[in-house]
């Protein structure tokens, strides 16, 4: 049987006295879109931070395609095929869109060769540029390649961030609130894009916009106060009483999950 792309087991993270993640487990299979939802402060971003090595868990394991991931430094993730977007934008305001995307590449010209501007490094750099343009084309934003990000609408900037993550040709893409601040039209385009990406990689998406997660995910994990309160297919989650209680309060008969970002 194929190894799951991301396998988090029994993960516990504590910040001082606060239990941020409490024995959390989840599995994202290959070519699966896995949604993580939950109210504010449920530990969604902490989970990503643990996967990326930004926070050290107290216990538990994180496996990526069967290999232990704990102890991996953040800069090594790109080489392993893991790309992540941050909740904020994190675009470089002084770099053009194309340059921002280029930084995301995991192929690097040799350090010394590019310092000495050797032809081999030069050719590689040109190839990377072509590849970056291709990624931008796929997202429909190639026309702004030479623009500084600050001059672009928010929705376009969010797409640049995804382009930068895709530049590494990842096997696992971690999206942290990709829909926040987007218009309805932008969200539709995002859903369509993530659906397409699934053919090439696994996507784990943390998102407040429950409708979007329901629409694109094959499986969903629901966190509340750092613990998993439900996991399953969108249909199962929709019918789960505990989930609707966490989102809407007790005593509801139907959960439309209308919490928007």
């Amino acid at each position: 049987m194929e190894q799951p792309t991301l396998d988090v087991a029994d993960l516990t993270v504590r910040f001082g006295g606060v239990l941020a993640l409490d024995h959390v487990s989840l599995r994202a299979e290959a070519n699966e879109i896995h949604g993580i939802i939950g109210p504010n402060g449920a530990g969604k971003t902490t989970l990503f931070n643990a996967v990326c090595g930004f926070v050290r868990p107290e216990r538990g394991t994180i496996r990526y395609r069967g290999e232990a991931l704990l102890g991996t430094a953040p800069h090594q993730l790109a080489q392993l095929g893991i790309a992540r977007t941050l909740q904020g934008l994190g675009l470089w305001p002084g770099l053009t869109v194309l340059e921002n995307v280029l930084v995301g590449s995991r192929v690097r010209p040799n350090f010394v060769a590019s310092l000495l501007a050797m032809p081999r490094a030069d050719r590689l750099e040109r190839r990377l540029r072509d590849q970056a343009i291709q990624v931008l084309e796929e997202l429909g934003i190639a026309s702004v390649a030479g623009t500084l990000p600050g001059a672009l609408p928010y929705g376009v900037q969010k797409r640049v961030i995804i382009a930068r993550a895709l530049m590494a040709a990842p096997d696992l893409l971690l999206l942290d609130e990709p829909a926040s601040g987007l218009s309805a039209g932008d969200i539709e385009r995002l859903a369509e894009l993530v659906g397409r990406l699934r053919q090439r990689m696994s996507v784990v998406v943390v998102e407040h916009h429950v409708d979007l997660v329901m629409a694109i995910s094959q499986r969903i994990t629901v966190l509340n106060f750092g613990a998993v309160i439900a996991s399953g297919t969108p249909a199962e989650i929709r019918g789960n009483r505990q989930v609707s209680a966490a989102y809407l309060g007790e005593d509801v008969t139907t959960a439309e999950g209308g919490a928007s970002a």
């Binding site: 953040p74 800069h75 993730l77 790109a78 994190g90 930084v103």
Partner: peptide, 10 residues
């Protein structure tokens, strides 16, 4: 200009 993001990108 943004060490954390750069690190994530390898």
């Amino acid at each position: 200009f943004n060490a954390e993001v750069a690190r994530l990108l390898g």
